[in-house]
Design a protein around this nucleic acid. Structure first.
Lengths: 358, 358
DNA sequence: CATCTCAAGGAAAACGATTGCCTAGAAGCT
DNA sequence: AGCTTCTAGGCAATCGTTTTCCTTGAGATG
């Protein structure tokens, strides 16, 4: 029994034993810069300078300190450092509605841009609750984050999260109602335009639009842009805009509506991939073939939907990761004293797939 | 011009002006406990005691200090506090593979359990890169987090993230290869058992199993449990286990295989919702009706899949949020000096829907 | 009246790093 | 040789809290 458990403990660290022993196995009491300094035979101030590449030190001394630090597995205490320097190399990210499909790419993009600068991200999920939001805001301020990124699913403008905050704030995906705040949003009108132009380019002229709820900002923006793009070609939508929900069920239902009204349609631009997928199923079960009879474009470029759909769905990609990255970069420049004001809209990208392949 | 910009500044804070002015608009220089103490006419030590409910103070004094803090919008500097107390009220969460569909519920659950204790979460996405992982580990240690949660998509055991770390670690969803580490995982065998028992309960006897890649731990565990559960009833799978990918495409393909081999099947338990959905489509386009001819159970209970599927898909829910919560609770108790060792498997839950409604 | 005992609050030492200022040699110059 | 000028590195203040003693004065007790 004891033999067995002994055996089991060993292989776990095999292969990385050396490095781990050097770097991370200094169990329990953390090692401070004072110990490093003592081992290197210098004062703590000198040790600090050596490790941070500051001050005037002989290269030899610098190296001796670094070696000592290495040997002891020294990692500077971030709290002590930030107390002194006022910087925490940390940013907060508050998602106003739940963390989900949209927040993740934003987070990844932001992490990318920040990680290069060695900054970490505090993720806070306010779950659409203003109380939670303010609570998290206080927490972040107490932790003296260097900056805050605010995100949310709705692309509609929201009330600023606070006024006169001591740290810079950038809004990503969602935008602030205060035009002086810095916001990075997708240019949804651009996305809709690209979708319609693509359909026009493959020769479709009788184009309908099915989308989400009319009270949803994204739905109306995309619809307006779609109509405008058609108008620029002297066309009108092949059917009245169909507003509903962001679901497959609505897409299927919408297919029924389109077919029953006898509208002559050779393409549908959908407000989301889910709607498009539902619509595809609805049309197919009524005998329509995609893309031969009806071409289809979705919105979001959500992998499981565009790949799950048959045929694979052409879609508009808002480049959420790029938005996250861009927001983080703007935040960084604000942190470094060069604040940027105003809203930036980033273009979308059309990803053509089988559902519009002629 | 200046008039216009003056005007613009006002409406932004309308509606929340009072509260915000009190709490968050103290722009620029942060207020320290020393200022609070001065305003209340006490020493900083006393102020600290007043705000933290420690020491022996007249209630009146306590209140005076609290009022002063309120008035100045004081928020304690977390760095200074943690430097003194050694606690940061922060935990790190490292996802070994990318943050995704599985990590989010885990994170939400963990945040739930931790948020109650006023702790915040550092989220780190190691993206399947051991270098990044070790880098993040160092960062977290430098930030002196109180504990670390490690998650990942594979439910297979992984090498411990470090040995002899100065902070407690809990593995969530994924488990550590070292049996002494604390891991919280779903009892996937339990889930598979429930799925099969449900199919048996509705009277099906010729049950097949279609799942993901054979080298994937989850796939084999679920398959084994399914076979065992059938065996307990004196049954065998209605067809050889079909291993493939975790995709709808594979589900559709598997439908073809099942049909072409002429296997006599009245139910299929699928290793994932995506496979189940693909299978549903495949069977339906071959004229089979669900659940009349073939009943279907998926795995994951992923909302967009179970709802998008027609008919709605019965599925096994691993309660990821519960796993996240449970992991966080175990981490908290370890932080409080009561470490728990070993692996904990949490039961799954079957969510019946139309695909098995008789 | 002299002590003793508390209650209430102050003073100051941590915590661990950074950084500006200072000093002791060594080197360069006349 | 005597002066200045660097160079390398030490000293100590500092960041904002918390916490451990102390001190003070008031009331209780003998």
């Amino acid at each position: 029994m004891s033999r067995a458990s002994y055996r089991r403990t060993t292989p776990a660290v095999v292969g990385c034993q050396e490095t781990q022993e050097e770097t991370l196995s200094t169990s329990e009491r953390a090692v401070t810069i004072t110990q490093v300094a003592a081992l290197a035979g210098v004062s703590t101030g000198t040790a600090s300078k050596a490790l941070n590449g500051r001050g005037a030190l002989r290269p030899e001394t610098r190296q001796r300190v670094q070696q000592a630090a290495e040997q002891l597995g020294f990692v500077a205490n971030a709290a002590a450092r930030s107390l002194q320097t006022g910087r925490t190399y940390t940013v907060g990210m508050i998602t106003t509605d739940s963390i989900g499909r949209f927040s993740i790419p934003l987070l990844i993009g932001a992490e990318d841009a920040l990680g290069a600068g060695q900054m970490s991200v505090f993720l806070c999920d306010a779950r659409d609750d203003p109380i939670r939001e303010q609570y998290y805001l206080r927490t972040l301020l107490s932790r003296k984050v260097d900056g805050i990124i605010v995100t949310g699913r709705r692309t509609q403008a929201r009330a600023p999260i606070g006024v006169g905050l001591p740290v810079p704030v950038v809004y990503a995906f969602i935008s602030s109602a205060d035009p002086r705040d810095c916001s990075v949003v997708p240019d949804e009108a651009d996305g809709a335009r690209r979708a319609v132009q693509h359909l026009l380019a493959i020769g479709r002229r009788r184009i309908a639009h099915v989308t989400g709820p009319e009270h949803h900002h994204s739905a109306t923006v995309r619809a307006t842009a779609a109509v405008d793009t058609l108008a620029a070609e002297g066309l009108r939508p092949a059917a009245p805009i169909l507003y509903g929900e962001w679901s497959e069920a609505w897409g299927r239902q919408a297919a029924g509506i389109l077919l029953s009204t006898g509208a002559d349609v050779d393409a549908v631009f959908c407000g989301s991939d889910q709607i498009a997928r539902g619509l595809a199923e609805g049309l197919q079960s009524a005998g329509r073939e995609i893309p031969r009879d009806v071409a289809l474009v979705g919105f979001d470029n959500w992998d499981v939907m565009v790949d799950g759909c048959r045929p694979a769905l052409t879609s508009v990609d808002m480049d959420l990761e790029g938005i996250g990255r861009s927001a983080a970069e703007l935040l960084l420049s604000a942190i470094n004293g060069e604040p940027v004001q105003g809203k930036r809209a980033r273009p979308c990208r059309l990803v053509p797939r089988a559902s519009t392949a002629v």
